[in-house]
Amino acid sequence: MLYAMTDTNNIEDITGDPYLLGLIIYHSEQALLPSELVVALIAAESGGDAYACSYEPLAQTAMQSARPGQCSLDTESVCQKMRWGLMRIPGATARRLGFESWLPQLSVPLVNLEWGVKYLVHLTNQFYKRHGYAGVIAAYHSGNPRKAGAQFVNQIYVDKVLKLMERYKPIVAEKREQALEVLETQVLTPEEADAAIRCDKGICEYLGYTLQDLKAMAAERGIEAAKGWKKANYAEALYSLDLDAVENAH
């Protein structure tokens, strides 16, 4: 199934964060993939927005896969039909690869990159030998590298990602050493990683509400929203108040 790609013009938005770039380089190099391929896919898929997601009602599910015990079948079905996070990995795909936690946790960059790269490795093993990275990119976008004549059916997407790879390659090479140094100094302890995941899960729960609902909740709790606030801004502000309330209770 084809879906829209993000329109990204400023590639510095992604490579300008040395910690994020370090994570991307680490995971891609561990998987023996070009770092610029992962960066280019993130640019095309989410534009570097960790909370990017989309719902595909016709997407296939993997309902036989393991899931959290408190997750209902209806919730699981919806979440499996979502694409999540930086790499917009499909929920059902993550389940097939062995992901057993709540699917909204795929919005956490640490988690998203791990499982998004696993999916990319899976596609590379299937399609690289015959189609090269162009076929891998086509499959990442639509499930398999289908062609109409000499071109992929999603050739526009493939061309965009290939061009982004060319643009990113020298930038990634130039910033690689610095990014990995920053990553090494900011590696989270297991406790810090758990706290980060809980935080992102809390924010994801708020993102399940409509923008109007979030505005109403923010007004009730005395949050002064800045002009142009989006759902992510309201979700982060509301969750920050939740954390303050827990700390004050202790």
Results as ranks from 00 to 15, higher is better:
residue 2 L to T: 10
residue 3 Y to Q: 11
residue 8 T to E: 05
residue 8 T to C: 09
residue 16 G to D: 03
residue 17 D to H: 06
residue 18 P to W: 00
residue 19 Y to L: 15
residue 19 Y to R: 15
residue 21 L to I: 12
residue 23 L to C: 11
residue 25 I to V: 15
residue 27 H to P: 00
residue 31 A to E: 02
residue 35 S to F: 00
residue 36 E to T: 07
residue 39 V to D: 03
residue 49 D to M: 09
residue 49 D to W: 10
residue 54 S to T: 13
residue 56 E to P: 02
residue 58 L to I: 02
residue 58 L to D: 14
residue 58 L to C: 06
residue 60 Q to V: 07
residue 61 T to G: 05
residue 61 T to N: 06
residue 62 A to M: 07
residue 65 S to Y: 03
residue 66 A to S: 12
residue 67 R to I: 14
residue 69 G to D: 11
residue 71 C to E: 15
residue 71 C to M: 15
residue 74 D to W: 08
residue 76 E to P: 00
residue 77 S to H: 07
residue 77 S to Y: 04
residue 80 Q to C: 09
residue 83 R to K: 13
residue 85 G to A: 09
residue 85 G to V: 09
residue 85 G to L: 11
residue 87 M to C: 06
residue 88 R to P: 03
residue 89 I to V: 15
residue 90 P to R: 08
residue 93 T to E: 13
residue 94 A to T: 04
residue 95 R to T: 00
residue 99 F to D: 01
residue 101 S to Q: 14
residue 103 L to H: 01
residue 104 P to L: 03
residue 112 N to M: 03
residue 114 E to P: 01
residue 115 W to K: 08
residue 118 K to I: 06
residue 118 K to S: 11
residue 119 Y to D: 10
residue 119 Y to L: 13
residue 125 N to A: 09
residue 127 F to Q: 08
residue 128 Y to T: 09
residue 129 K to E: 15
residue 131 H to P: 08
residue 132 G to W: 01
residue 133 Y to P: 06
residue 135 G to I: 13
residue 141 H to G: 01
residue 143 G to C: 05
residue 143 G to K: 12
residue 144 N to Y: 13
residue 149 G to C: 09
residue 149 G to D: 06
residue 154 N to D: 15
residue 154 N to E: 12
residue 155 Q to D: 04
residue 156 I to G: 08
residue 159 D to H: 07
residue 162 L to Q: 07
residue 162 L to V: 11
residue 163 K to N: 14
residue 165 M to I: 11
residue 165 M to Y: 04
residue 166 E to S: 08
residue 167 R to Q: 14
residue 170 P to N: 09
residue 174 E to D: 10
residue 175 K to M: 06
residue 179 A to H: 07
residue 179 A to E: 05
residue 182 V to L: 04
residue 182 V to Y: 00
residue 184 E to V: 08
residue 185 T to L: 13
residue 187 V to N: 07
residue 187 V to P: 02
residue 188 L to W: 07
residue 188 L to A: 12
residue 189 T to Y: 05
residue 194 D to I: 11
residue 195 A to N: 10
residue 196 A to N: 10
residue 197 I to R: 13
residue 200 D to C: 11
residue 202 G to L: 01
residue 203 I to W: 00
residue 205 E to Q: 14
residue 208 G to C: 01
residue 209 Y to A: 13
residue 212 Q to D: 14
residue 216 A to I: 14
residue 228 G to I: 02
residue 228 G to V: 04
residue 232 A to G: 05
residue 234 Y to I: 01
residue 235 A to L: 04
residue 236 E to Q: 10
residue 236 E to L: 08
residue 242 D to F: 02
residue 244 D to S: 12
residue 246 V to G: 03
residue 248 N to R: 13
residue 248 N to C: 06
residue 248 N to L: 14
